[in-house]
Write a protein that binds this DNA or RNA. Structure first.
Lengths: 217, 217
DNA sequence: GGACTGACAGATATTGAAATCTGTCAGTCC
DNA sequence: GGACTGACAGATTTCAATATCTGTCAGTCC
């Protein structure tokens, strides 16, 4: 039943400090392992049914042990949300920090974000729905994530302004305006629309409008 | 208890056809009167509790009589939604059909839409929440409403292109792009953000970006 | 005869008792 | 002595019985 449970007759590890950077044996309870198992439980049971007791059971420990690492169920779910959002950052920062002209970089960043979100939503709709719930529960984490995304945008805009490719705008508020204007193509609440015919044309149209507003004539 | 109920000893009207365009006496059951009462019941009990029986009770008739005019509860709610959305059209079409340069008209149309929505949300949050639920139930009605709004936008854009004020764009898809880009400022799902500090600056920034993308350099 | 009623079947919502879960902590076990 | 357990109180969820609602229609009443 459990993917990690019943570590049955195995002896508990005695000295873990011999090789400080070696991977922890699966018998050691760490935040990372709890997080992984929580994702697993969430995936299986869904956000409504997944309980701390389920996570503990899957790990083969008592739920009291889980509370030793995460102060509350909310904190545990928040950490899972954080983890998931962090993945999104990394992939896109490549575009933000690349060399070359700003316009295609901005286009690719926006298209990359849209494509990534759409894949997440399409490849495993159930898991996506689960994360939609978590995201709804953790607006503070999400707000921070959004700020990071807008900072990436601002870096691209700043580059474009510096190179004279874009008109002289204030990068930070402009980045926010770009984020807001493309809202429909990254807010998961609109995921259902991302699979309608004509969505790519609509995305292109908004991108064109935004980029025309930025380009030095 | 009921605002309309107990029309007690009054005799039923005998001949209604004498003056065809006279206002119906309140004792006559008409779709319009049912709609009004339904709005009232919705306002009082909220979308979850308001029932067809409640509406009938408020009208002082049996619920069977309500079903004579509206085939189902869903149809009744849909009609209420339609009615509400129709009000939004009318106010803004003034901007869409006005004379003068397109840029300020477009700006005022967008600002007018945002202001109207924000007032609806702020003046009576409970009623707004009620209509949010109705709107969620009636996506077909909402989709039609959105098409009408985009048509109004397209008329402004077309005027701007004709007068050489805007660059030569295809009005219909451009209007849709403008609608999409300003999404955050008209989709009621974001109502909570409309009262955060800085929202007006964010709105202006998106408007500026969009209008710069339209203006002939 | 056409507007309206009210009883009805099936669907949906409410309720309260029982089960489960969250979060704590004194105590156990290396 | 620090990681872990398991019993516990209070909060939350589940489940099944009960009540209410939706939609229909034969029948009533001007």
């Amino acid at each position: 039943m459990s993917r990690y449970g019943h570590y049955g007759g195995l002896p508990a590890p005695s000295s873990l400090m011999e090789r400080p950077y070696a991977p922890m044996p699966p018998e050691t309870l760490t935040p990372a392992r709890i997080l992984e198992t929580t994702e697993d439980v969430l995936r299986r049971y869904g956000p409504a049914k997944a309980t701390v007791v389920d996570v503990a059971r899957a790990l083969g420990v008592s739920h009291g042990s889980v509370y030793r690492h995460f102060g509350s169920k909310a904190a545990l779910r928040e950490a899972v949300t954080q983890r998931w959002l962090d993945q999104s950052h990394t992939a896109l920062s490549a575009f933000a920090d690349a060399e070359g002209p700003a316009e295609p970089r901005l286009r690719e960043w926006l298209a990359g974000l849209f494509a990534a979100k759409r894949h997440k939503a399409g490849d495993d709709p159930e898991l996506f729905a689960t994360y939609m719930v978590l995201v709804g529960e953790n607006s503070a984490v999400v707000d921070r994530h959004i700020e990071t995304m807008i900072e990436q945008l601002a870096r691209i805009v700043e580059g474009g302004v510096r190179d004279g490719e874009f008109i002289a705008v204030d990068p930070a508020p402009t980045a926010r305006a770009i984020w807001d204007a493309t809202n429909r193509f990254h807010d998961p609440a609109y995921a259902a629309e991302w699979f309608r015919p004509g969505i790519d044309a609509a995305f292109e149209a908004v991108c064109d409008l935004v980029l025309r507003g930025l380009r030095r004539a």
